[in-house]
Design a protein around this nucleic acid. Structure first.
Length: 422
RNA sequence: GGAGCAGUGGCAGAGUGGUUGAUUGCGACGGUCUUGAAAACCGUUGUGCCGUAAGGCACCGGGGGUUCGAAUCCCUCCUGCUCCGCCA
Protein backbone atom coordinates (compact mmCIF):
# COMPACT_ATOMS: atom_id res chain seq x y z
CA UNK A 1 0.00 0.00 0.00
CA UNK A 2 1.13 3.50 -0.80
CA UNK A 3 0.91 6.54 1.47
CA UNK A 4 -2.16 8.43 0.24
CA UNK A 5 -0.27 11.68 0.75
CA UNK A 6 2.31 10.60 -1.80
CA UNK A 7 -0.42 9.77 -4.29
CA UNK A 8 -2.02 13.11 -3.60
CA UNK A 9 1.26 14.94 -4.14
CA UNK A 10 2.31 13.13 -7.31
CA UNK A 11 -0.66 11.45 -8.98
CA UNK A 12 1.14 11.35 -12.32
CA UNK A 13 3.91 9.23 -10.85
CA UNK A 14 1.46 6.55 -9.76
CA UNK A 15 -0.50 6.63 -12.99
CA UNK A 16 2.78 6.06 -14.78
CA UNK A 17 3.65 3.23 -12.40
CA UNK A 18 0.31 1.57 -13.10
CA UNK A 19 0.90 1.94 -16.81
CA UNK A 20 4.44 0.53 -16.97
CA UNK A 21 3.63 -2.23 -14.50
CA UNK A 22 0.42 -3.09 -16.32
CA UNK A 23 -1.95 -2.73 -13.41
CA UNK A 24 -5.28 -1.04 -13.71
CA UNK A 25 -6.32 1.47 -11.06
CA UNK A 26 -8.32 4.68 -11.29
CA UNK A 27 -6.09 7.18 -9.50
CA UNK A 28 -8.40 10.11 -10.28
CA UNK A 29 -11.35 8.30 -8.75
CA UNK A 30 -9.22 7.43 -5.72
CA UNK A 31 -8.33 11.07 -5.15
CA UNK A 32 -11.94 12.11 -5.63
CA UNK A 33 -13.08 9.64 -2.99
CA UNK A 34 -10.29 10.73 -0.68
CA UNK A 35 -11.17 14.42 -1.03
CA UNK A 36 -14.80 13.80 -0.26
CA UNK A 37 -13.86 11.61 2.70
CA UNK A 38 -11.56 14.29 4.06
CA UNK A 39 -14.26 16.94 3.86
CA UNK A 40 -16.83 14.68 5.49
CA UNK A 41 -14.47 13.68 8.26
CA UNK A 42 -13.74 17.30 9.00
CA UNK A 43 -17.45 18.05 9.25
CA UNK A 44 -18.03 15.09 11.54
CA UNK A 45 -15.13 16.18 13.70
CA UNK A 46 -16.50 19.70 14.01
CA UNK A 47 -19.86 18.32 15.08
CA UNK A 48 -18.17 16.04 17.61
CA UNK A 49 -16.29 18.99 19.06
CA UNK A 50 -19.53 20.87 19.54
CA UNK A 51 -21.32 17.81 20.96
CA UNK A 52 -18.52 17.19 23.43
CA UNK A 53 -18.59 20.82 24.55
CA UNK A 54 -22.31 20.78 25.28
CA UNK A 55 -22.32 17.20 26.56
CA UNK A 56 -19.77 17.96 29.23
CA UNK A 57 -22.00 20.64 30.71
CA UNK A 58 -25.17 18.51 30.72
CA UNK A 59 -24.75 16.87 34.14
CA UNK A 60 -24.39 20.26 35.83
CA UNK A 61 -27.41 21.85 34.24
CA UNK A 62 -30.76 22.62 35.81
CA UNK A 63 -33.71 20.58 34.55
CA UNK A 64 -35.03 23.21 32.14
CA UNK A 65 -31.63 23.97 30.63
CA UNK A 66 -30.81 20.33 30.34
CA UNK A 67 -33.89 19.57 28.25
CA UNK A 68 -32.93 22.30 25.85
CA UNK A 69 -29.35 21.10 25.57
CA UNK A 70 -30.44 17.54 24.90
CA UNK A 71 -32.77 18.69 22.15
CA UNK A 72 -29.89 20.58 20.60
CA UNK A 73 -27.66 17.53 20.80
CA UNK A 74 -30.27 15.41 19.04
CA UNK A 75 -30.13 17.78 16.11
CA UNK A 76 -26.37 17.49 15.93
CA UNK A 77 -26.70 13.76 16.03
CA UNK A 78 -28.99 13.74 13.04
CA UNK A 79 -26.55 15.77 10.99
CA UNK A 80 -23.73 13.53 12.06
CA UNK A 81 -25.63 10.41 11.00
CA UNK A 82 -26.17 11.87 7.56
CA UNK A 83 -22.43 12.39 7.07
CA UNK A 84 -21.61 9.03 8.64
CA UNK A 85 -23.75 7.21 6.13
CA UNK A 86 -21.83 8.71 3.26
CA UNK A 87 -18.51 7.98 4.95
CA UNK A 88 -19.46 4.34 5.37
CA UNK A 89 -20.26 4.25 1.68
CA UNK A 90 -16.95 5.77 0.65
CA UNK A 91 -14.55 4.04 3.04
CA UNK A 92 -14.75 0.57 1.45
CA UNK A 93 -14.32 2.16 -1.98
CA UNK A 94 -11.29 4.00 -0.72
CA UNK A 95 -9.76 0.87 0.83
CA UNK A 96 -10.37 -1.15 -2.29
CA UNK A 97 -8.75 1.43 -4.55
CA UNK A 98 -5.80 1.90 -2.18
CA UNK A 99 -5.02 -1.82 -2.31
CA UNK A 100 -4.78 -1.62 -6.08
CA UNK A 101 -2.26 1.21 -6.40
CA UNK A 102 1.04 -0.30 -7.50
CA UNK A 103 4.39 0.66 -6.10
CA UNK A 104 6.50 2.46 -8.72
CA UNK A 105 9.46 0.43 -9.93
CA UNK A 106 12.95 1.55 -8.95
CA UNK A 107 14.95 3.82 -11.25
CA UNK A 108 17.28 1.00 -12.25
CA UNK A 109 14.46 -1.28 -13.35
CA UNK A 110 14.23 -1.74 -17.13
CA UNK A 111 10.94 -0.71 -18.71
CA UNK A 112 9.39 -3.58 -20.59
CA UNK A 113 6.20 -5.40 -21.49
CA UNK A 114 6.80 -8.90 -20.16
CA UNK A 115 9.42 -11.46 -19.13
CA UNK A 116 10.96 -11.43 -22.62
CA UNK A 117 12.26 -7.94 -21.85
CA UNK A 118 13.95 -8.80 -18.57
CA UNK A 119 17.59 -7.76 -18.68
CA UNK A 120 20.33 -10.29 -18.11
CA UNK A 121 22.88 -9.09 -15.57
CA UNK A 122 25.34 -11.96 -15.63
CA UNK A 123 25.82 -15.66 -16.23
CA UNK A 124 27.53 -18.11 -13.94
CA UNK A 125 28.73 -21.63 -14.59
CA UNK A 126 29.29 -23.61 -17.75
CA UNK A 127 26.51 -25.21 -19.72
CA UNK A 128 27.24 -28.88 -20.11
CA UNK A 129 27.81 -30.22 -23.63
CA UNK A 130 26.63 -33.79 -23.99
CA UNK A 131 28.48 -36.41 -26.04
CA UNK A 132 25.34 -38.54 -26.04
CA UNK A 133 21.66 -37.76 -26.54
CA UNK A 134 20.50 -36.50 -23.16
CA UNK A 135 17.14 -37.48 -21.72
CA UNK A 136 14.76 -35.06 -20.08
CA UNK A 137 13.96 -35.36 -16.38
CA UNK A 138 10.73 -37.27 -16.92
CA UNK A 139 12.39 -39.86 -19.15
CA UNK A 140 15.19 -40.21 -16.63
CA UNK A 141 12.92 -40.21 -13.61
CA UNK A 142 10.47 -42.70 -15.03
CA UNK A 143 13.22 -45.08 -16.13
CA UNK A 144 14.89 -44.82 -12.72
CA UNK A 145 11.47 -45.20 -11.03
CA UNK A 146 12.01 -42.05 -8.98
CA UNK A 147 9.30 -39.88 -10.59
CA UNK A 148 5.75 -41.13 -11.08
CA UNK A 149 3.55 -38.60 -12.82
CA UNK A 150 0.93 -41.08 -13.96
CA UNK A 151 -0.08 -42.09 -10.46
CA UNK A 152 0.07 -38.49 -9.26
CA UNK A 153 -2.49 -37.61 -11.91
CA UNK A 154 -4.58 -40.67 -11.06
CA UNK A 155 -4.97 -39.48 -7.48
CA UNK A 156 -4.98 -35.72 -7.82
CA UNK A 157 -5.38 -34.71 -11.43
CA UNK A 158 -3.07 -32.91 -13.77
CA UNK A 159 0.10 -31.21 -12.45
CA UNK A 160 0.43 -33.73 -9.62
CA UNK A 161 3.12 -36.36 -9.16
CA UNK A 162 4.88 -38.73 -6.83
CA UNK A 163 8.59 -38.73 -6.07
CA UNK A 164 9.77 -42.19 -5.14
CA UNK A 165 12.83 -43.76 -3.58
CA UNK A 166 15.92 -41.77 -4.50
CA UNK A 167 13.66 -39.17 -6.12
CA UNK A 168 12.02 -38.39 -2.78
CA UNK A 169 15.41 -38.54 -1.07
CA UNK A 170 16.99 -36.20 -3.59
CA UNK A 171 14.10 -33.77 -3.11
CA UNK A 172 14.57 -33.73 0.65
CA UNK A 173 18.33 -33.55 0.24
CA UNK A 174 18.30 -30.26 -1.69
CA UNK A 175 15.84 -28.84 0.81
CA UNK A 176 17.85 -29.92 3.82
CA UNK A 177 21.09 -28.69 2.31
CA UNK A 178 19.53 -25.28 1.53
CA UNK A 179 17.92 -24.93 4.92
CA UNK A 180 21.18 -25.64 6.67
CA UNK A 181 22.99 -23.18 4.43
CA UNK A 182 20.63 -20.44 5.63
CA UNK A 183 20.72 -21.56 9.23
CA UNK A 184 24.50 -21.21 9.16
CA UNK A 185 24.06 -17.62 8.02
CA UNK A 186 22.01 -16.80 11.07
CA UNK A 187 18.57 -16.88 9.53
CA UNK A 188 16.03 -18.02 12.11
CA UNK A 189 14.26 -21.19 11.00
CA UNK A 190 10.48 -21.07 11.31
CA UNK A 191 7.99 -23.86 10.86
CA UNK A 192 4.96 -21.95 9.63
CA UNK A 193 1.19 -22.35 9.26
CA UNK A 194 0.27 -22.99 5.65
CA UNK A 195 -3.39 -22.07 6.04
CA UNK A 196 -3.68 -18.35 6.61
CA UNK A 197 -6.39 -15.73 6.95
CA UNK A 198 -7.21 -13.30 4.16
CA UNK A 199 -5.46 -10.63 6.23
CA UNK A 200 -2.09 -12.31 5.68
CA UNK A 201 -2.76 -12.71 1.97
CA UNK A 202 -3.71 -9.05 1.71
CA UNK A 203 -0.79 -7.98 3.84
CA UNK A 204 1.73 -9.64 1.57
CA UNK A 205 -0.14 -8.26 -1.48
CA UNK A 206 -1.27 -11.60 -2.92
CA UNK A 207 -4.82 -10.36 -2.44
CA UNK A 208 -6.58 -8.65 -4.07
CA UNK A 209 -5.65 -9.97 -7.47
CA UNK A 210 -4.24 -13.41 -6.73
CA UNK A 211 -7.43 -15.07 -5.48
CA UNK A 212 -7.58 -17.37 -8.49
CA UNK A 213 -4.07 -18.64 -7.83
CA UNK A 214 -4.74 -19.79 -4.26
CA UNK A 215 -6.60 -22.78 -2.91
CA UNK A 216 -9.17 -21.55 -0.46
CA UNK A 217 -10.81 -23.45 2.37
CA UNK A 218 -14.18 -21.79 2.04
CA UNK A 219 -15.67 -23.42 5.15
CA UNK A 220 -12.98 -21.98 7.35
CA UNK A 221 -12.17 -18.84 5.38
CA UNK A 222 -8.53 -19.84 5.18
CA UNK A 223 -6.11 -19.88 2.26
CA UNK A 224 -3.41 -22.38 1.42
CA UNK A 225 -0.25 -20.37 0.89
CA UNK A 226 1.60 -20.46 -2.40
CA UNK A 227 4.85 -19.69 -0.59
CA UNK A 228 6.18 -19.43 2.97
CA UNK A 229 6.81 -15.76 2.16
CA UNK A 230 3.27 -15.17 3.38
CA UNK A 231 3.52 -16.55 6.93
CA UNK A 232 7.17 -15.51 7.21
CA UNK A 233 6.53 -11.87 6.31
CA UNK A 234 3.21 -11.68 8.15
CA UNK A 235 4.81 -13.23 11.26
CA UNK A 236 5.14 -9.76 12.81
CA UNK A 237 1.89 -8.41 11.31
CA UNK A 238 0.42 -5.60 13.39
CA UNK A 239 3.45 -5.39 15.66
CA UNK A 240 5.75 -2.58 16.64
CA UNK A 241 9.26 -4.02 16.76
CA UNK A 242 12.20 -2.66 18.68
CA UNK A 243 14.90 -1.29 16.42
CA UNK A 244 17.32 -3.82 17.91
CA UNK A 245 15.18 -6.64 16.50
CA UNK A 246 16.08 -5.50 12.99
CA UNK A 247 17.07 -6.84 10.64
CA UNK A 248 14.89 -9.88 11.33
CA UNK A 249 15.97 -12.73 9.09
CA UNK A 250 13.84 -15.81 8.72
CA UNK A 251 14.00 -19.01 6.75
CA UNK A 252 11.35 -21.64 6.33
CA UNK A 253 10.95 -24.93 4.56
CA UNK A 254 7.36 -25.48 3.55
CA UNK A 255 5.01 -26.95 1.05
CA UNK A 256 3.53 -24.48 -1.42
CA UNK A 257 0.20 -24.74 -3.19
CA UNK A 258 -0.73 -23.05 -6.44
CA UNK A 259 -3.86 -23.45 -8.51
CA UNK A 260 -2.09 -22.31 -11.67
CA UNK A 261 -5.42 -21.06 -13.00
CA UNK A 262 -5.03 -19.41 -16.36
CA UNK A 263 -1.90 -21.43 -17.03
CA UNK A 264 -3.83 -24.17 -18.81
CA UNK A 265 -1.76 -25.54 -21.63
CA UNK A 266 1.36 -23.76 -20.42
CA UNK A 267 4.35 -25.74 -19.19
CA UNK A 268 2.24 -28.86 -19.05
CA UNK A 269 5.18 -31.21 -19.39
CA UNK A 270 7.14 -32.49 -16.45
CA UNK A 271 7.74 -31.08 -13.02
CA UNK A 272 8.13 -27.44 -14.01
CA UNK A 273 4.68 -26.05 -13.25
CA UNK A 274 2.88 -28.08 -10.62
CA UNK A 275 0.20 -27.59 -7.98
CA UNK A 276 2.26 -28.58 -4.98
CA UNK A 277 5.95 -28.33 -4.25
CA UNK A 278 8.35 -27.62 -1.42
CA UNK A 279 10.44 -24.55 -0.99
CA UNK A 280 13.03 -23.09 1.33
CA UNK A 281 12.28 -19.39 1.52
CA UNK A 282 14.16 -16.46 3.07
CA UNK A 283 12.60 -13.24 4.34
CA UNK A 284 14.28 -10.11 5.69
CA UNK A 285 12.50 -7.38 7.64
CA UNK A 286 14.70 -4.32 7.97
CA UNK A 287 14.72 -0.62 8.73
CA UNK A 288 13.02 1.89 6.50
CA UNK A 289 16.16 2.83 4.63
CA UNK A 290 16.90 2.55 0.95
CA UNK A 291 20.54 1.57 1.44
CA UNK A 292 19.67 -1.07 4.02
CA UNK A 293 17.03 -2.50 1.74
CA UNK A 294 19.45 -2.67 -1.18
CA UNK A 295 22.06 -4.25 1.03
CA UNK A 296 19.73 -7.07 2.05
CA UNK A 297 18.42 -7.42 -1.48
CA UNK A 298 21.99 -8.15 -2.56
CA UNK A 299 22.44 -10.44 0.43
CA UNK A 300 19.43 -12.64 -0.22
CA UNK A 301 20.37 -12.88 -3.89
CA UNK A 302 23.88 -13.88 -2.91
CA UNK A 303 22.62 -16.52 -0.45
CA UNK A 304 20.71 -18.28 -3.19
CA UNK A 305 23.55 -18.02 -5.69
CA UNK A 306 25.78 -19.76 -3.17
CA UNK A 307 23.35 -22.67 -3.08
CA UNK A 308 23.31 -22.98 -6.87
CA UNK A 309 27.09 -22.72 -6.97
CA UNK A 310 27.38 -25.43 -4.35
CA UNK A 311 25.12 -27.58 -6.50
CA UNK A 312 27.31 -26.62 -9.49
CA UNK A 313 24.37 -25.59 -11.62
CA UNK A 314 24.74 -22.98 -14.39
CA UNK A 315 22.43 -20.03 -14.03
CA UNK A 316 21.95 -16.41 -14.90
CA UNK A 317 20.58 -13.44 -12.98
CA UNK A 318 18.08 -11.11 -14.63
CA UNK A 319 16.77 -7.70 -13.68
CA UNK A 320 13.03 -8.12 -14.02
CA UNK A 321 11.38 -5.44 -16.16
CA UNK A 322 8.43 -3.26 -15.14
CA UNK A 323 5.81 -5.30 -16.99
CA UNK A 324 6.86 -8.48 -15.18
CA UNK A 325 6.98 -6.96 -11.68
CA UNK A 326 4.29 -7.58 -9.10
CA UNK A 327 2.13 -4.79 -7.79
CA UNK A 328 4.22 -4.20 -4.70
CA UNK A 329 7.73 -4.91 -5.90
CA UNK A 330 10.17 -2.06 -6.34
CA UNK A 331 12.71 -4.33 -7.93
CA UNK A 332 13.16 -8.03 -8.54
CA UNK A 333 16.07 -10.24 -9.51
CA UNK A 334 15.15 -13.60 -10.93
CA UNK A 335 17.65 -16.38 -11.01
CA UNK A 336 17.17 -18.66 -13.98
CA UNK A 337 18.85 -22.03 -14.00
CA UNK A 338 19.81 -23.84 -17.18
CA UNK A 339 17.40 -26.64 -18.05
CA UNK A 340 18.64 -28.78 -20.95
CA UNK A 341 15.23 -30.16 -21.90
CA UNK A 342 13.81 -26.65 -22.14
CA UNK A 343 16.96 -25.45 -23.89
CA UNK A 344 16.82 -22.31 -21.83
CA UNK A 345 17.50 -20.61 -18.54
CA UNK A 346 14.28 -20.92 -16.54
CA UNK A 347 13.15 -19.18 -13.39
CA UNK A 348 14.04 -21.02 -10.21
CA UNK A 349 14.38 -18.07 -7.82
CA UNK A 350 12.82 -14.68 -7.36
CA UNK A 351 14.36 -12.02 -5.10
CA UNK A 352 11.92 -9.21 -4.38
CA UNK A 353 12.35 -5.86 -2.74
CA UNK A 354 9.14 -4.35 -1.39
CA UNK A 355 10.16 -1.25 0.49
CA UNK A 356 7.31 -0.48 2.89
CA UNK A 357 4.59 -1.74 0.56
CA UNK A 358 3.85 -4.93 2.47
CA UNK A 359 4.51 -3.38 5.88
CA UNK A 360 1.91 -0.69 5.30
CA UNK A 361 -0.64 -3.30 4.33
CA UNK A 362 -0.01 -5.37 7.44
CA UNK A 363 0.81 -2.49 9.77
CA UNK A 364 4.29 -3.76 10.55
CA UNK A 365 6.40 -1.08 12.22
CA UNK A 366 9.40 -0.51 14.44
CA UNK A 367 10.13 2.15 17.01
CA UNK A 368 12.88 4.46 15.84
CA UNK A 369 15.17 5.17 18.76
CA UNK A 370 16.10 8.72 17.73
CA UNK A 371 12.77 10.16 16.62
CA UNK A 372 10.71 7.87 18.91
CA UNK A 373 8.38 7.47 15.98
CA UNK A 374 6.83 4.25 14.76
CA UNK A 375 8.06 3.64 11.25
CA UNK A 376 7.03 1.07 8.64
CA UNK A 377 9.61 -1.65 8.10
CA UNK A 378 11.01 -2.70 4.76
CA UNK A 379 10.54 -6.29 3.64
CA UNK A 380 12.36 -8.53 1.17
CA UNK A 381 12.26 -12.17 0.18
CA UNK A 382 13.89 -14.71 -2.04
CA UNK A 383 13.68 -18.38 -2.85
CA UNK A 384 16.55 -20.40 -1.44
CA UNK A 385 15.55 -23.51 -3.32
CA UNK A 386 12.30 -24.81 -4.77
CA UNK A 387 11.95 -28.50 -5.44
CA UNK A 388 11.09 -30.45 -7.51
CA UNK A 389 11.61 -27.63 -10.01
CA UNK A 390 15.34 -27.61 -9.27
CA UNK A 391 15.40 -31.38 -9.78
CA UNK A 392 14.91 -30.67 -13.48
CA UNK A 393 18.40 -29.19 -13.96
CA UNK A 394 19.93 -31.52 -11.40
CA UNK A 395 18.68 -34.71 -13.01
CA UNK A 396 19.22 -33.51 -16.56
CA UNK A 397 22.68 -32.01 -16.06
CA UNK A 398 24.01 -34.79 -13.85
CA UNK A 399 22.78 -37.64 -16.07
CA UNK A 400 25.14 -40.22 -17.48
CA UNK A 401 25.09 -42.03 -20.80
CA UNK A 402 23.86 -45.22 -19.08
CA UNK A 403 20.76 -43.47 -17.72
CA UNK A 404 22.06 -43.15 -14.19
CA UNK A 405 22.38 -39.83 -12.41
CA UNK A 406 25.38 -38.66 -10.43
CA UNK A 407 24.47 -37.11 -7.08
CA UNK A 408 25.86 -33.57 -6.67
CA UNK A 409 28.73 -33.60 -4.19
CA UNK A 410 27.07 -31.48 -1.50
CA UNK A 411 24.00 -33.72 -1.49
CA UNK A 412 25.85 -36.99 -1.04
CA UNK A 413 25.85 -36.81 2.78
CA UNK A 414 22.07 -36.58 2.67
CA UNK A 415 21.67 -39.34 0.10
CA UNK A 416 24.24 -41.77 1.36
CA UNK A 417 25.24 -42.52 -2.23
CA UNK A 418 26.90 -40.79 -5.16
CA UNK A 419 24.85 -42.25 -7.97
CA UNK A 420 21.20 -42.95 -8.66
CA UNK A 421 20.75 -46.12 -10.66
CA UNK A 422 17.93 -48.42 -11.56
C1' G B 1 -18.08 -30.49 19.05
C1' G B 2 -20.56 -29.26 24.28
C1' A B 3 -20.30 -26.09 28.96
C1' G B 4 -18.14 -21.96 31.45
C1' C B 5 -14.74 -17.63 32.24
C1' A B 6 -11.90 -13.68 30.38
C1' G B 7 -9.58 -9.73 26.78
C1' U B 8 -8.01 -2.04 29.72
C1' G B 9 -1.65 1.91 28.18
C1' G B 10 5.67 -1.67 27.78
C1' C B 11 4.05 -5.07 31.94
C1' A B 12 0.89 -5.71 36.31
C1' G B 13 -3.79 -4.11 37.68
C1' A B 14 -8.30 -0.45 39.14
C1' G B 15 -12.46 1.34 36.93
C1' U B 16 -20.06 -1.17 35.79
C1' G B 17 -23.47 4.94 32.13
C1' G B 18 -21.52 11.65 32.85
C1' U B 19 -15.08 16.84 32.91
C1' U B 20 -11.86 9.01 32.60
C1' G B 21 -7.45 8.96 27.43
C1' A B 22 -8.52 6.48 31.67
C1' U B 23 -6.57 5.69 39.62
C1' U B 24 -2.32 3.00 41.14
C1' G B 25 2.21 -0.06 41.09
C1' C B 26 6.43 -1.73 38.28
C1' G B 27 9.51 -0.73 34.27
C1' A B 28 11.68 3.13 31.03
C1' C B 29 13.41 8.26 30.27
C1' G B 30 14.86 13.31 32.26
C1' G B 31 16.22 16.06 36.65
C1' U B 32 17.69 17.01 42.05
C1' C B 33 21.00 14.84 45.59
C1' U B 34 26.04 11.89 45.38
C1' U B 35 33.26 11.43 44.19
C1' G B 36 30.40 7.43 41.55
C1' A B 37 26.33 4.13 42.18
C1' A B 38 22.08 2.75 44.95
C1' A B 39 18.15 4.78 47.76
C1' A B 40 14.96 8.99 48.13
C1' C B 41 12.37 13.03 45.88
C1' C B 42 10.31 15.85 41.43
C1' G B 43 8.83 15.46 36.45
C1' U B 44 7.96 12.82 31.69
C1' U B 45 6.33 8.31 29.54
C1' G B 46 0.24 4.97 24.06
C1' U B 47 -1.41 5.33 18.83
C1' G B 48 -3.76 7.34 14.54
C1' C B 49 -6.16 11.46 11.98
C1' C B 50 -7.11 17.03 10.91
C1' G B 51 -4.26 21.68 11.58
C1' U B 52 1.65 26.12 10.02
C1' A B 53 0.37 26.46 15.08
C1' A B 54 -2.83 26.91 19.16
C1' G B 55 -5.81 23.25 19.41
C1' G B 56 -9.39 19.53 17.99
C1' C B 57 -11.17 14.39 16.97
C1' A B 58 -10.94 9.09 17.43
C1' C B 59 -9.28 4.63 19.90
C1' C B 60 -10.06 0.54 26.76
C1' G B 61 -9.66 -7.16 21.45
C1' G B 62 -12.59 -6.07 16.12
C1' G B 63 -17.38 -4.58 14.14
C1' G B 64 -22.43 -3.06 15.04
C1' G B 65 -26.35 -1.25 18.41
C1' U B 66 -28.98 1.35 22.81
C1' U B 67 -28.34 6.55 24.91
C1' C B 68 -28.11 13.55 24.94
C1' G B 69 -23.68 10.77 26.82
C1' A B 70 -20.38 3.91 26.99
C1' A B 71 -14.18 1.16 28.93
C1' U B 72 -18.84 0.57 31.57
C1' C B 73 -25.49 -1.93 28.89
C1' C B 74 -26.98 -5.21 24.33
C1' C B 75 -25.65 -8.15 19.70
C1' U B 76 -21.86 -10.38 16.84
C1' C B 77 -17.00 -11.84 15.46
C1' C B 78 -11.90 -12.74 16.94
C1' U B 79 -8.40 -14.33 20.66
C1' G B 80 -6.96 -16.74 25.25
C1' C B 81 -8.03 -19.97 29.51
C1' U B 82 -10.76 -24.08 32.31
C1' C B 83 -13.79 -28.60 32.22
C1' C B 84 -16.07 -32.59 29.17
C1' G B 85 -16.00 -35.30 24.46
C1' C B 86 -13.06 -36.78 20.16
C1' C B 87 -8.27 -37.53 18.06
C1' A B 88 -2.60 -37.89 14.59
Amino acid sequence: MIDIKLIEAQPARFKEAARTKKFDVDIDRLLEVYDELKTLRQKVQDIATEKNRIGKAVPKMAEQQRKQAIAELSEFKEQEQKYDERIKELEPQFEELMLLVPQPAGDDVPVGEDDTENVEIRREGQIRKFDFKPKDHIELGTALDIIDVERGVKLSGTRNYFLKGDGALLHWAVLRFSLEHMKAKGYVPLMVPLLVRDEAMRGTAYYPGGEDQAYRMEKDELNLVGTAEVPLTAYHMGEILQKEQLPAKYVSMSSCFRREAGAAGKDTYGLYRIHQFDKVEQVVVCENDEQESDKYHAEILHNSEEVLQALELPYRVVNVCTGDLGRGQIKKFDIETWMPSRENYCETHSASKFGEFQSRRMNLRYKDTESKKNIFCHTLNNTVIASPRVLIPILELYQNADGSVTVPKVLRPYMGKDRITR
